[in-house]
Simulated scan of single mutants.
Amino acid sequence: MGRRETPVPDGPLREFAADLRELRTNAPGTPTYRELARKANYSPSVLSRAAAGHTLPTLDVTLAFVAACGGDVEEWRRRWTRLHVTLQRAYPDLISEADEPRDAADGPGEPTPPDDTATGGTAAAGAATGRVTGGRLLVVAAVAALAAAVALAVASPWSSEAKHRVAPPSSAAPSPTSAYDPVYLDRRLPLPDYNFYFDLQTGVVAEGDGPWSMSTNSGGDGHGAFEIPDGTDVYISPEPSLTPDRCAAQASPAPSYGVRFRRVPPGTLFCLRSRGTGAIALIRVIETDDGNYAAKISLDYYQRRR
Rank of each mutant, 00 (worst) to 15 (best):
A125I: 09
A149N: 04
S156H: 11
T117F: 06
L152M: 05
A149M: 04
T129G: 02
D99Q: 06
K163P: 00
A148F: 06
L59Q: 04
R38S: 15
A90Y: 07
H54P: 01
G71L: 06
T62E: 02
A67S: 15
L152K: 07
D93M: 14
R77E: 06
P113F: 04
L56N: 02
D93L: 13
S96I: 10
S159H: 01
N41I: 03
V61A: 00
T55L: 12
A149C: 01
T86R: 02
G135I: 06
A104K: 05
G135E: 06
L36A: 12
V132W: 12
W158A: 14
T119Y: 11
I95N: 03
G107L: 12
W76P: 01
V140E: 11
V139C: 13
A125K: 12
E97R: 09
R79D: 08
P108C: 06
R79Q: 09
R78C: 04
S156F: 09
V139I: 15
S43M: 13
G71C: 09
D60Q: 03
A51T: 07
E74W: 12
L146V: 00
E110N: 03
V132Y: 12
V61Y: 00
H54M: 10
T133G: 02
P108W: 04
P108T: 12
A127G: 11
C69P: 11
A153F: 05
V61T: 09
A124M: 12
L56P: 02
V150I: 07
I95R: 01
C69V: 04
A128P: 06
G109E: 05
T58E: 01
R49N: 15
G120N: 11
L59V: 08
L59C: 03
P157W: 07
P92I: 03
A64N: 10
T81C: 00
V46R: 02
V66L: 13
E100V: 05
D99P: 01
E97T: 05
A104E: 04
V154W: 11
A148T: 07
R165E: 09
L83N: 04
W158H: 08
T119W: 09
P108K: 10
G70E: 13
V85T: 10
A52G: 11
A51W: 06
H84T: 01
D99T: 10
E97M: 02
L47I: 12
L83P: 02
R49G: 15
S156A: 10
V139F: 14
L63H: 05
T58P: 01
L137D: 11
G120L: 12
D116E: 10
A162F: 02
T86W: 01
Y42A: 06
A105W: 06
E75C: 02
G121H: 11
W158I: 13
D93I: 11
D106T: 06
K39W: 08
S45D: 15
D116T: 08
A125L: 13
A155T: 07
R165D: 08
